[in-house]
Design a protein around this nucleic acid. Sequence first.
RNA 1: GCGCCCGUAGCUCAGUUGGAUAGAGCAGCGGAUUUCUAAUCCGCCGGUCGCGUGUUCGAAUCACGCCGGGCGCACCA
Length: 557
Amino acid sequence: MVSPVEILSREIEHHLNAPALVRPCTDPRLGDFQANGVLAAAKQRGQNPRALAEQIVTRLSLADVCEPPEVAGPGFINFRLKPSFVAQQLRSMMSDERLGVAPASPAETIVFDFSGPNVAKQMHVGHIRSTIIGDALARVARYLGHRVITDNHLGDWGTQFGMLIVGWNRFRDDAALQRDPLSELERLYREVNARPELREEARAELVKLQRGDPANRAIWQHILDLSRHAFDEIYEKLGVRFDFTLGESFYNPMLPDVVKELLDCGIARVSDGAVCVFAADQPTPLIIQKSDGGYGYGTTDLATVKYRVENWRPHRIVYVTDARQQLHFKLVFATVRRWLPNPPHLEHVAFGSILGEDGKPLRTRSGENIKLRELLAEAEERALTIATSKNPHLPEDQRREIAQVIGIGAVKYADLCQNRTTDYVFSWDKMLALDGNTAPYLQYAYVRIRSIFRKAGLSVVPVPSQLEFQDASELDLGKHLLRFRDVLYDVLADYKPNWLTAYLYELAGKFTAFYDRCPVLASPEPTRQQRLAMCQLTGNVLRTGLDLLGIRVLEQM
RNA sequence: GCGCCCGUAGCUCAGUUGGAUAGAGCAGCGGAUUUCUAAUCCGCCGGUCGCGUGUUCGAAUCACGCCGGGCGCACCA
C-alpha cells in the first residue's frame, strides 16, 4: 500500500524534478497536505515560485486522490484528500495485516546497542532511558522489515572486580546475598572502597583475575550470574528482550590484537607511554592502551565494532547512550572509519538526563541513585491506587494486572514522549495523570474501543464494502489513520520515538472526538458496520503503535 | 580556556530539518452527561521563541557575537 504522501510526492516530483517536501498542513483549514518543495526549487533556479507552482499544478493528475490543488502564499501547493480516496485507502489498510505499512526497501541489518548496565550494581534511573528508547527504536525498525539485532553490552569487566573480589572474600554475608544480591554486592564494594589499606590487595586480585586464576574467575562468574538474574527480572517487567548479551568481558581476549592492528597500520601511535589514536580535529586522543598496559573501554568498543561487522555484517550500528558520551563515540567512530574497510554507519543516539522536580539530577533524599526496581514498583503501586478508586468493583488480581500495565506504560511513555535530546523532569503526577498526553489516556481510548466490541458480542468485523463519512470527525479520524506508515518511517529516520507518541496521542484524541459525536452500536446499518470497522482499525493502530513503544494495552481499566 | 547540548505560554514540553497567523498538555476560568467506560469532550485565558546583528521572498529553526543553564575535555566506564 502506498501512502497519500508518497502518491502526492511522486506525482509532484515527476513534474518538478526536485524534492516535493510534502508535509501535513500547518493549518487544517488550508488542506490536508502541503508541498513546500516548489519554493526551494524556484529559488535554486531563479524562477518566480508562485508562477512555477501554478505551472506545476496544471500538470498534476490527481483527480482520484484529491480536490483540485491550490497554490497559496508565496508558492505552497495545498491538497485536500477526497473522501472517496480516504475511504478506499482505509479499506485497503483494514484488509492488510501490516496496517498499510510496506516493509522498508532495501531492508538493512541494524544493530541496536542499548541498556548496558554495570554488573554488581543495581540498575537505576540512569539506565531507564537507554533501555526504553533503545527497545522502542529496535521495535520500530523490526516492524519496518529491517533485520534487527539487539545487543546488551554489559559492563562486566574492569577494575571494580579487584575490589569486589576482596570484598567477596573478606566481608561477604551469604544470607544478605541470598536476599538481595545486588545490594550486598554494592555493600561489598563500599566496604573495600572505604579501606585504603586494601587497595593493594584489590589490585593484586584484579591481576589474578585477568590472568585467569580459577578461584577469582569463579567469583567473577558468580557475580555475573547474580547480576544477570537481577537484570532479567527488570527486563521481564519492562518487556525488553535482547538477541545477544555480549558484555565487555567477551571482547577482552581480542583487545591485544586490536591494539596491534592499529599500531601496525599506523593509525595508532605511542604518546606519553600510552597507545593513542589522534583524530585530525580533536585535541584529545582515544587511548587504546594505557601506559601501564591496561585497556580502557575505548579499546573494547573498537573490538566490539569489529566483532559485529565480522559476524553480523550490519549496515548500521546504533548506540543509545546518554549525551555525555558524545566525545567518546566521536573518537571511536572516527577510528573505525579509518580502520575497517567499508565500515557500517555508526550512530550515537544521545539523550539527556533525568532531572528531579528541583531541576537537579534525580536522586533520593539521601543523595543516592533511585533504583529502577523501586521506581517500577512505585509506578505500579500508584497505578493500583488509581485503578482501585476508579473501579473498586473489579477483582483484585485484575486490578493488579491493570496497575502493572498502566504503571509500567506510564513510566515508558513519559520518557518516550519527549524529544530525547533534552533533559527531562521526572514527575509521578504527570506521568500517571488521567488526562493529557499520557499512556493511560491512550490505553483508555483502546479500552473504549474494546468495550464497544464486547458489548456488540463481536471479536472482529469484516472490511465493509463501502465507507461513508457522515460526520467531520469520521473523515478527520480516517485521514489521520492513513498517516501511520509515514510516521513510523520518520521515527526511525531521526530516531525520534516522540513522533510516534505525538501521532498516537492525536489519534486517540481524534478517536474520542469521533466517539463523542458518532454512535456506533445504536446506528442503523450499514453505518453501524462501517463505524465498527473504523473502531477496529483505530484499535489495531493504537495497539500496534503502543506495542512498538513497548507499551501494552488492556481490555478493561 | 576549548568543545558539545540547551534556553519557546505561569509550569512541563512539541515544533518533520528555512515556510503560511508559533502549537499541545498541565494549572486557571467557563460549559457539556436519558447514548457504546466521564481515566471523557467543548470553549476561554495565556508568547519580545534568552538578547542583538546578519543571511533572504521568508528565521524559533541557519551564521556571528553576547547573557544564562547543563555536560564533556589522555590513561574510570
